[in-house]
């Protein structure tokens, strides 16, 4: 196993760069980070729409979130990769396609996390802000959201872990993320597949386990400050 690591660690980390596009573990992390960073504002907006008092906003968004959450991520990727170019006329590369799919998919899940965070806040907070004379928008912005987002932080870190795992599906459209690279290495080495895939698993494990421990620590720290979500079990878990 050690010779494999020795020979291929650079390829594993950054793919063919600089002789080709960026790949490997760095690409995985880049894709996951960009995906979550872009999905977050969209997710917050969708979450706000889900709790808004206006039906014309609530219903379409609820429908959208329902559909996206009922489909496998792979389906969303296929739509983005095969169908979108025929509609828009623009053929996007694998990274962009994967990014679009991740942003749309994760935003739908984040919308639910945001909604749970907002609804988990005691009703008195919104009421008090309104009683002081703040309008709905300002009350949301200054009182409800700051508390909700803070209490959602552990869920958001867990969502980041899910997003990292979701990037693995880029494999199917030929994106050179770390799982794809592992298979490329396997094709070259040929005789040690178990070891190669164990290394792949270990890489993901270290990354994701580290992050989920961080989320756990965050949750405990927030609980001490009296700011954890009322019922974290009700915020849905994503597995992919």
């Amino acid at each position: 196993m050690l010779e494999i690591i020795n020979d291929y660690w650079v390829y594993f980390l950054i793919g063919q760069y600089p002789n080709g596009p960026l790949g490997g573990l760095v690409l995985t992390l880049l894709l996951a980070s960009c995906g979550l960073v872009l999905a977050l504002p969209l997710g917050v907006m969708l979450g706000l729409a889900r709790v808004s008092p206006w039906r014309w906003l609530r219903w379409p968004v609820t429908g959208f979130v329902f559909v996206v959450r009922g489909l496998p991520l792979l389906m969303v990727i296929f739509w983005a990769y095969f169908f979108l170019p025929s509609v828009t006329g623009v053929k996007t590369d694998q990274f962009t396609t994967m990014l679009i799919a991740l942003v749309v998919f994760d935003a739908a899940y984040l919308a639910e996390i945001v909604r749970a965070g907002i609804q988990g806040l005691p009703r008195g907070q919104m009421e008090t802000a309104r009683a002081l004379g703040l309008g709905y928008g300002r009350a949301m912005r200054l009182v409800v959201l700051p508390q909700s987002l803070r209490s959602m932080l552990p869920s958001l870190v867990n969502q980041f872990v899910s997003t990292i795992k979701e990037t693995s599906l880029g494999y199917i459209i030929g994106l050179a993320e770390v799982s794809f690279i592992a298979t490329q290495i396997n094709t070259q080495v040929f005789t040690k597949p178990a070891q190669i895939y164990l290394i792949l698993g270990l890489t993901y494990f270290i990354l994701c386990f580290g992050l989920s421990r961080f989320a756990y620590w965050l949750e405990r720290r927030l609980a001490r400050r009296g700011m954890s979500v009322a019922n974290p079990a009700s915020a849905p878990k994503v597995s992919a």
């Binding site: 008090t128 009683a131 700011m227």
Partner: peptide, 14 residues
């Protein structure tokens, strides 16, 4: 222009 004090105080914890 109307001050309201609630039974549950409802201070903003953040």
């Amino acid at each position: 222009r109307i001050g309201f004090v609630f039974q549950q105080f409802n201070l903003f914890p953040h």
